[in-house]
Structure formats: structure tokens, C-alpha cells
Amino acid sequence: MKEEFKVISRFIEEKSRVLDVGCGDGILMEYLSKNKVVDVRGLEISKEKVKKCLSKGLAVIEGDAENDLKQFPDLSFDYVILSQTLQAFMSPEKVIENLLRVGKKVIVTIPNFGHWKVRLDLLLKGEMPVTKNLPYQWYNTPNLHMCTIQDFYNFCNNKGINIYKTISLNGEKISNISNSNLKYKNLISELGIFLLEK
């Protein structure tokens, strides 16, 4: 399982209710239901992936976060997970608002556009960056709203969203991000994992 998922699952307490938004093949859902005995639901836009999840008996519905989150009642989950999909939405702001409405706590992972390789690509080559986590060209990328760890920090502060914890992932290296090391972690992290609360 991906390091990212290991970090996410450490955030989640046993016997809680979890919604995985953009759950993909359901790998994290399977892990959580087996190892954390959580009641876990998924939302996924790709028919192929939904079928894979259902084949594993997972409670996944086909839909997209921008239209289908509204059907879930307020605070109906202990945790809502959004792994590396925030940047693909038309309105990330509204999606985050809805996640915080549905979940008591929200876990958001973002691919960090502030990573030094990304910065260097643009600086030296003068081209839009293409990396392992962001493998697309500018003309076919589904990522409409890229941001950096710093950007997401600022966003949460402006919106009055509490950041409980932030984890930096760089390859398999896991570290904490705090106010004091934010500038540095924003440079070396491939992923930022945020635990949020309204």
C-alpha cells in the first residue's frame, strides 16, 4: 500500500465512519475496513474503478464530489478523505466546504506544486513541470487548480479551517510540518497530507 495511505490510516480511529471521496480501486477502503474495523463508504467517478470496488463488496457509489456530496447529511461521517483529487475540481473551494460539512474531520492530500523539482522545471526549462506525481502535459492535464503546501496553509487560515496536523511525504520519508519548518517542507515535499476540522 502507498505510504500516503499508511499515513492517512494512522489518522483514523477504530470503529469510526469514513467516506473516501475519489476512492479509486478501493485499496485504502479495503485496508481500513480490515485493519481499523471502520464503516467505510466510497465515492468514485470512474465506472471501471467503481466496478472494481463493488466486485470487492465495497460500498462505493458512482458519482463526483462536486455534484454528489450534497446527498450526504451534515456531519454524517467521522472522517472524510480526499486523496490527490482536490486539484481536479472546478471549484476546490466548494468541495472543501462540503467535505467539512459532511465530515467531523477531513483528511486532504495534495500533490505539492511547490516541490523544488517543479520550481526548477519552470525556472530552468521555462516549461510546465511534468513529474512522477504530476505526469501530464499542460494540454491534457485534469489538474485545473494546482497549489503548494504553503497555498493550502494560507487557504485554511483565510477560511478559518483548523489544521490539526500536516504531514510531509517525500518518497517514503514521512515528517511533520509545522509553522517553523513550513517554507522548507514546501520545497522538499512531494505530497502534503492535512488533517482538518471546521
Binding site: D39, K47, V50, K51, A59, I61, E62, G63, Q71
Partner: peptide
Amino acid sequence: IVIALNAIGADVGFVEIK
């Protein structure tokens, strides 16, 4: 039907087959 079930936190899966 899916929406009604989600509203009460029921265990529901849904797919539209092409």
C-alpha cells in the same frame, strides 16, 4: 434510491453500466 439511502447512512453501492 441511492440518495435516499445515503441520507440515512445505509450501506449502499451504485454503478451505472454502459
